[in-house]
């Protein structure tokens, strides 16, 4: 096995393990930290795919910003006291059923798909590099890119409007 393959297996193991720990951990803070670890190992996968830009952005955006906000909210809500709460058995059963169903669907879908074979000879290893990505985004797909940014802008404004507190409401 060459080093990158073994590294791939190691990363996959780490990803799945930490993803499981996210679900299993009782303490929400621990969950968040495991989630961050998951993002890291996913970034590792990106690097293996020679997509360094995506890897960096994944860390900056998800691990660096969004998860900080998660942690922030959890710290503020102070869920530490509630960790002993026992979920009702019904909830557990329902969760198992839903989860199981999703798993079955995914598995079925996976079985139906045939993965395209990679043409190793003609494969451009630089496709994930940032220059190529830039060309794609700002030349070929300029319109969809701009539309998406407008969409995000609208979403952001909407979130601000929703989150804006009225006078007299509680504030952080």
């Amino acid at each position: 096995m060459n080093p990158s393959i073994s590294f791939f297996y190691f990363l996959s193991f780490l990803t799945i393990l930490s993803a499981l720990m996210v679900v299993i951990s009782k303490n929400p803070i621990h969950s968040v930290l495991y989630l961050i670890l998951t993002f890291f190992s996913i970034s590792g996968h990106y690097i293996l795919l020679n997509a360094q830009f995506i890897a960096a952005v994944n860390i900056i955006v998800y691990a660096g910003a969004i998860m900080v906000l998660f942690l922030f909210v959890i710290m503020f809500l102070n869920l530490k006291q509630d960790q002993a709460d026992s979920k009702a058995n019904l909830t557990k059963i329902a969760a198992t059923i839903v989860g199981g169903t999703v798993f079955v669907i995914l598995f079925g879908a996976y079985r139906k798909t045939t993965l395209p074979a990679v043409d190793t000879a003609n494969y451009n290893s630089q496709v994930g590099m940032i220059e190529n990505l830039g060309h794609l985004l700002f030349k070929e797909y300029l319109l969809p890119f701009e539309l998406i940014s407008i969409l995000l802008l609208i979403a952001m404004i909407g979130a601000v409007m929703l989150g804006k507190r009225e006078i007299g409401e509680r504030h952080f």
């Binding site: 830009f53 952005v57 860390i59 900056i60 660096g64 910003a65």
Partner: peptide, 13 residues
């Protein structure tokens, strides 16, 4: 080739 982004990522952490 993504040096500055790397720095950013680390700083964000």
């Amino acid at each position: 080739n993504i040096g500055i982004l790397y720095v950013f990522g680390v700083v964000a952490l």
